[in-house]
Design a protein around this nucleic acid. Structure first.
Lengths: 346, 346
DNA sequence: TTAAAATAGTATAACGTTTACCTAAAAAAA
DNA sequence: TTTTTTTAGGTAAACGTTATACTATTTTAA
């Protein structure tokens, strides 16, 4: 059916080896035959069969993107799609496909990985954090199968992962608030045990210490990652004898609750109170006021993960380390420069 | 490196044909050799090379999911990811991969399709609405390449597409509002020219007509798909001599603006005014009040698209028609039963 | 002028499967 | 018993490409 290298060879009256060499820019073919063969290719509308080529090269041409995607997880991880897009951008230029594989849980993920590795379905794998588990990682490491874990695994392992630096996120939030002139900073976090939350708080605290700023103990609140918890914690803050003039909220939902609490207490954001949060969800730009946010550069994570993985694939001996990306500050209206307020109005 | 069918054959002391037949459940192999060979497979940890098999079968094992994904489009189309997941669910069970291909514009999409078809990269293609264009569709049709367009193309074509029924969406919104006991219904839409908007409005209007309900002309407003527009249109409505007791907002952003306007006018939603909108974005459950929504069953679209495409691939003669899915009503707090209010409180 | 090296091209074996065609034994039918 | 049919399995070609090893010609170097 489809036209193959044989058809081209026959039609151009050369051997298939010659055609192949032209396809792959190998030396020792004259300019004239090259041109002739290329014309024939065009005339026959020949396209080399990528699959056959991959088969011969013993590569699959696939890099699997593996993630846990229960129903309706999009909100829980809108970042997943963006990471996929970032990775896809890099991979497309390198003649790889990026099969998306959504599994139902980490057990399913583990089974899938075994199948992928066993059946040669892929040359490498990007494992989204939601799909990691110790057995999965151990399996990949043991089989020396090229992979990158997106999101630092919560267990020690000699694998290669990429993540954002949550400590720096905490620092950046604080740094920007200070720059704005806010001085009494509160922190509303998720569960105390959560690692991400802990790291962000550490960043915040270390910035405060380095800059010899004092932290009021009762300005640090823990709760859950919900709107309701944000509301309650903010209320608590507002009922204490001294008020903060800015608050760092661990996520959009908490921020949403905090905004409502401030509204209830007739505090204006950003004038009476600055508010900054993490992760740029669609919500953050749509609520009132639009939120200033420390965001993960999620495309960059996808791009980097993919490009490092490609390096690994092309050079299996390469020992690549895990690495972190830096967050981005996105300034919106929930913070404002407290000192130069009047200036900007003149 | 990897263990192949040859290794199994040698180790089991049979021919590779026998091993292959066992793999593919072909007849005329005795139970005893079957068992023996299977044991050897297990012992050697043999996995058939899917790529080689596909190559032999002249199929690629890929179904491409093609979509336009500029940077940060996630919010503009969070549905894209959900459709991808839905499709993936179906495809995974059929031993296909679902390479995700994000392109920058429809021109890029067209080039990609030509490459995919030419190079045999895929056996079929799911084209997300964002990637369609007349040349692309014409190309697929002309080459008789299995495909489904997700989202009805805005031009006439003998292709096969899947979409939700926006007229029914409009009807459902109205039907539910009536059921709740709201009687004076307003409609805040996007641009008058927008097809989706027009269809939803048509559904609304036709429901009103069939049920002999009157529509006030000045209860129908057009604007843009933004929060600001929603706010303005709602203000307009609230300044008119007669007030609606419920409003249908074309999308989440408009609804957001409308909610603010109602707040400003000290109207309580859902008590003084019911509000219903379309498409279940994360926003809708997080704002105050959480919004009642007519949602596209986006997983179902993905699943159906994939399963129809698989049918097409397996039976090229099959002439499948385009088809529509029905929307879902998701009841939240921006509407309430006006008649039985007291009942529920007793 | 002759030998060596570079150029231009071909023939063919792989890659790991599947399958059409073959053989031989066993079972069934005559 | 003989013939036919069924069962069990093997041989080898094919899928479309790439690469190694080869030949033959031309160019360069000695």
């Amino acid at each position: 059916m489809a036209v193959t290298i044989k058809d081209v060879a026959r039609e151009a009256d050369v051997s298939i080896a010659t055609v192949s060499k032209i396809l792959n820019n190998k030396p020792y073919i004259s300019e004239s035959t090259t041109q002739h063969v290329k014309e024939v290719m065009k005339r026959l509308n020949y396209h080399p069969n990528a699959q056959a080529s991959n088969f011969k090269y013993k590569r699959s041409g696939n890099i699997v993107f593996l993630a846990v995607t229960e129903l309706h997880t999009a909100f829980h991880n809108p970042h997943m799609f963006e990471i996929l897009c970032g990775a896809q951008n890099v991979i497309r230029n390198k003649d790889y496909n990026l099969p998306f594989m959504g599994v139902s849980d980490t057990q399913d993920a583990y089974e899938s990985v075994k199948k992928i590795v066993g059946c040669n379905t892929a040359d490498g794998i990007l494992v989204h954090g939601s799909a990691t588990s110790r057995p999965l990682v151990d399996f990949l490491v043991k089989n020396n199968f090229p992979h990158i874990i997106i999101g630092r695994p919560p267990f020690a392992s000699s694998t290669c992962w990429i993540d954002t630096n949550n400590r720096v996120s905490g620092q950046m939030a604080m740094e920007y608030l200070e720059e704005c002139g806010y001085t009494q900073i509160a922190f509303i976090g998720g569960p105390k045990s959560d690692e991400i939350s802990r790291h962000r708080l550490q960043g915040f605290v270390s910035y405060m210490n380095i800059n010899r700023l004092t932290i009021q103990d009762d300005f640090i609140k823990y709760g859950t990652y919900t709107k309701e918890s944000g509301f309650l914690m903010m209320e608590e803050l507002l009922c204490q004898p001294t008020l903060p003039d800015a608050v760092i909220c661990e996520n959009n939902q908490i921020a949403m609750g905090a905004v409502h609490a401030a509204e209830k207490h007739q505090l204006s954001i950003p004038k009476d109170m600055g508010l900054i949060t993490f992760d740029d969800y669609p919500l953050s730009q749509l609520i009132d006021p639009p939120l200033t946010v420390i965001d993960i550069d999620v495309h960059e994570i996808g791009r980097q993960a993919a490009s490092i993985l490609l390096q690994k694939i092309n050079n299996p001996a390469l020992q690549v380390q895990s690495f972190v990306t830096l967050p981005n500050l996105i300034i919106r209206s929930s913070t404002q420069n407290q000192n130069k307020m009047s200036h900007s109005l003149i």
